[in-house]
Design a protein around this nucleic acid. Structure first.
Lengths: 259, 259
DNA sequence: GCAATGCTTG
DNA sequence: CAAGCATTGC
């Protein structure tokens, strides 16, 4: 089984690239998309359905938005934090979480806030959101299902995940963010990518600005985190940088795990 | 010798399509472009020069803009109405005219105002501009050079040039516009396309809106007009609708004349 | 419907 | 640098 995560930075703009990539994959089971940037009614479902894929979406206008595209039907679809945390508060004004069960595995697709700048209001929101995610996972883990949690985390957990370790301390690599993510992983998740690859220099995102990709100024901020049973079963995890070479690419490229 | 006219609706957006089309033509001598929508410093000259073409431009920000791309060098290049009508008044705030001599033929590349709606201020501007063009041609014809005048005229001269003759009277087919164009042609120009093809149903422009191209709701508003000596020599004139079928096409497609 | 603009976000 | 938005033009 293969599951991929890809921040496409607008599904409407990237549709042809996503379809071409899907066609090339052949054996993909689930594709988790982030930053679809479209309300559910305008998501191009048909393009995927015509190819035989199942589609579940959770989006909004302009910002954020997540989606699950799968070969077989998805079950027990949950949108946002509310299904597990309750809807007394509106956790889900920003659409950043969608989850479903695929062949007995709970797939959790996340778009973690970017945080803008360390110390900013958006940074505070990112940290609060990560605390919320921890709560959410605490509940989710009580189901005793195997969980695959993937998406754009907007956090490079270790210095080897950044092209320049001097970036440690800045946004996406500050200690509070890393600590928050470590606490989440401590609930019982491991990084599928690091099961197979230890060296630095593997990235999933390159800034559009000032030739970030050409100069390979990348960050590994898109992750596949697995509960212990799945981590045991994982046989591969890799980053496909090909889509980042396209004309008008997303700034992110897919990360794929094989179970 | 082959000369083409093509309203590309932004040369920066259409560059790859224009280059691919040029590559397919092989024997093209001069390509007259309209609606380049770019200031001269930002025109992508290099892309053409690398392929061995000569480039002359006359553009502005956002709107209008014309250019000449040629296999051999162009001589006696003139920008706007001013070179023949004098610069006491600013005829050329809108960049709509460029002209040059190619192998002894004066090529005149025009982007006639659209006119928006019959009776509007822009419609009045269109009629004034056509009167100005008539004056300009009166001077130009004194040079006794053969003249090829082509471009986007934004006028369908006869009912057979529109998908629906009921459009006669509306913008691009109103009697004052047609009369103004007839007066211009009466100075000594003939329609190269109609030398070879009499039937209706041949168009060079289809509105982007409401599936104009798919329903073949077209207009023939891009023209190749020739002075008598050249008209005599013309051996073919046709519309290449292939570029209009492209992804993200211009709303116009090229018209080519062979001399 | 598809360009352009200037604006905001990442 | 490239999305989104709203506005303008054709």
């Amino acid at each position: 089984m293969q599951i991929a995560t890809w921040n496409v930075n607008s599904i409407r703009t990237r549709l042809s690239q996503v379809l071409a990539w899907l066609d090339r994959q052949g054996s993909l089971d689930v594709l988790c998309l982030q930053e679809t940037k479209v309300v559910d009614e305008e998501f191009p479902r048909e393009a995927f359905q015509e190819r035989g894929y199942w589609v579940e979406v959770y989006g909004q206008k302009s910002y954020n938005g997540v989606a699950l595209i799968s070969r077989d039907p998805l079950e027990k679809v949950e949108r946002g934090f509310a299904p597990l945390l309750g809807s007394v508060e509106d956790w889900d004004e920003q659409k950043r979480v969608i989850s479903a069960v695929y062949q007995g595995i709970r797939i959790l697709n996340l778009y973690v806030p970017n945080g803008s700048e360390v110390g900013s209001e958006k940074y505070a929101y990112k940290l609060r959101w990560l605390a919320l995610l921890k709560q959410y996972l605490t509940v989710a883990l009580q189901q005793k299902e195997p969980i695959l949690m993937c998406g754009d985390f907007n956090i490079a957990l270790e210095d080897r995940d950044i092209y320049d370790p001097k970036k440690a301390g800045e946004i996406m690599a500050s200690e509070p963010e890393r600590q928050a993510l470590r606490e989440i992983l401590a609930l019982g998740f491991q990084d599928a990518f690091r099961k197979f690859t230890a060296e630095p220099g593997h990235f999933s995102w390159w800034d559009y600005r000032s030739g970030g990709f050409q100069r390979n100024r990348g960050w590994r901020i898109d992750h596949q985190y697995l509960s212990p049973d799945l981590y045991e079963k994982a046989t591969a995890c890799w980053i496909d940088i090909e889509p980042r070479r396209a004309e008008k690419p997303s700034d992110h490229t897919p990360v794929i795990v094989t179970l």
